[in-house]
Simulated assay, not measured.
Amino acid sequence: MSDKPFTLGLIINPYAGIGGALALKGSDGAEIRSKALALGAQKKAADKTRLALDEISQLKDKVHILTAAGEMGEDLAKAMGFTYTLVYQSNNIQTEGSDTEATAKALLAQHVDLVLFAGGDGTARNICHVIDQHIPVLGVPAGCKIHSGVYAITPQAAGRVLSQVIQGQIVSLNQADVMDIDEDLFRQGRVNARQYGEMQVPTELRYIQAVKMGGKESDELVLTDIAAHIIDIMAEHPQHYFIMGSGSTVDFVMQELGLANTLLGVDLVKDRQLIASDLTADTLLDYVKNQATKLVITLIGGQGHIFGRGNQQLSPAVLRFVGKENILLIATKNKLNSLAGKALVSDSGDMQLDRELAGLMPVITGYRDQVLYPLADLENLPSKQLS
């Protein structure tokens, strides 16, 4: 490598993901952000970016960060001891998408080596609108909506890819889709996703997520069998709460129960009756602290995430009270096969919890039919994920 420092563009959307734990299903728009903050939401994008930058902490002498003032990057770069230069200053009380785009334009003009950004699909859209395919980018997942292929599977994974790039290791550079959905329709339980463009992403297959697969499960008979298995477990445990996670596979179970379902939220069932709908993380925690509880979840097809994508209501505190032994993971074998051998991923926001969950997990794939499938320890990913 040359002695010239690696120039890293850094953009943090400070409000990314603040609506997730409160079941607001997004953080686009000043009104939603204000509501989330009023309800006690915490800004976590900077903390997630810190996890990524921690992975290159030993390379500080090789890196120079170019970023925006304040929460958009300056505060974190300064706190972590990186050398940095400011390229943009927002005049807004709350940063907007226009600030993300203005920062991206400034970084493009400076010809940075790579842009690291933290946010969700809305942030990716803003950056794609400016940068397109001119400069490599890498996303730190921090938003409620993470459908785009420009994001690493976790903040730490983003940092590991970045470390490889800075050290000049051979890393593939691929085109990745930028996807987004309509948040207003999302809050009504409808997903209207579309592609907005492509960006170049350094790709190391252990660490960069696949674009979410679209469409409904095709094998209805298999889903019926899975639902029958879950309903039997409910009948065997009438005093248990059953947290019903988001996704079409869980939705099918709720249909079989004849219960209204929040497709993109979290509901609570007891004795096969609906107790509460579209719960926030705090309300859900109040329930599970006082009652034996099981959690019914599925994985994101093509990606393998079980926590940290669209289900932030399942907070680390909730998951700890439920316990690994009470997690009922459901998926068709076709859905597992779509992972092409890649391990499942937990990105709960609690690294210790993710490590505790790692290992072989039973997956309910039919009536009284289960398979064991690995949940990744991100410190030591299975070798099969290398290809």
Rank of each mutant, 00 (worst) to 15 (best):
L257R: 00
H134I: 10
S338M: 12
Y373W: 11
A157K: 02
I32D: 02
H147R: 07
L336H: 05
A104T: 06
A193R: 15
S387H: 12
A317Y: 05
T83Q: 13
R33S: 12
G168Q: 05
L353N: 02
Q303A: 04
A376K: 05
A36K: 02
H147S: 09
D177L: 11
E96A: 11
E31H: 10
G40F: 04
N13I: 06
D225P: 01
D3P: 09
Q352P: 09
G189S: 02
A358G: 01
Q312G: 01
K294Y: 10
L185V: 13
L162S: 04
L336P: 04
G245T: 00
V322L: 00
N261Y: 12
A292M: 12
G139S: 04
Q167I: 06
R190Y: 11
H305M: 11
L299H: 11
G9R: 02
F117K: 01
G214S: 14
A210F: 12
M199H: 07
Q164R: 08
T7H: 11
S383A: 15
H111R: 05
G9H: 02
V211K: 10
T95A: 13
V137R: 00
K43I: 03
T49V: 14
R50A: 14
D54G: 02
I166V: 15
L299F: 08
L339F: 08
H111V: 00
V222Q: 15
L319A: 00
K333V: 06
K333E: 15
L279H: 01
Y196P: 01
A158W: 06
T280S: 15
D182Y: 06
I275M: 13
P141A: 13
H147V: 07
A157S: 07
T365W: 03
K216D: 13
L257E: 01
D219I: 06
M1E: 11
G40L: 06
L8N: 08
A30W: 10
I153A: 01
G258D: 02
D350F: 05
G143S: 07
A228C: 09
V269N: 07
R206I: 11
L319D: 01
L108P: 03
V165C: 05
G143E: 05
A36S: 00
D28I: 11
K384C: 12
Q42D: 13
P155V: 08
A68K: 10
G302Q: 13
A176E: 12
M234N: 04
A79D: 14
F307M: 03
H147Y: 14
L259P: 03
S315L: 09
S277H: 11
E236M: 12
S387K: 08
D3I: 12
K25L: 13
I127K: 04
Q255E: 14
V318R: 04
Y373N: 08
M213D: 12
A52E: 05
A193D: 09
S148E: 01
N192I: 15
K333Q: 14
E236Y: 11
E31M: 13
Y241A: 00
L386W: 14
H237V: 09
K335N: 00
L344H: 02
D347P: 07
N326W: 07
T203N: 13
T100S: 14
D286H: 15
E198V: 14
G302L: 13
A340L: 12
K44I: 12
G366T: 01
Q133S: 07
M234R: 05
P136V: 03
K270N: 12
Y151S: 08
L221N: 14
A210P: 09
K48V: 08
L344V: 04
T103Q: 03
V296Y: 04
L386S: 14
T224F: 11
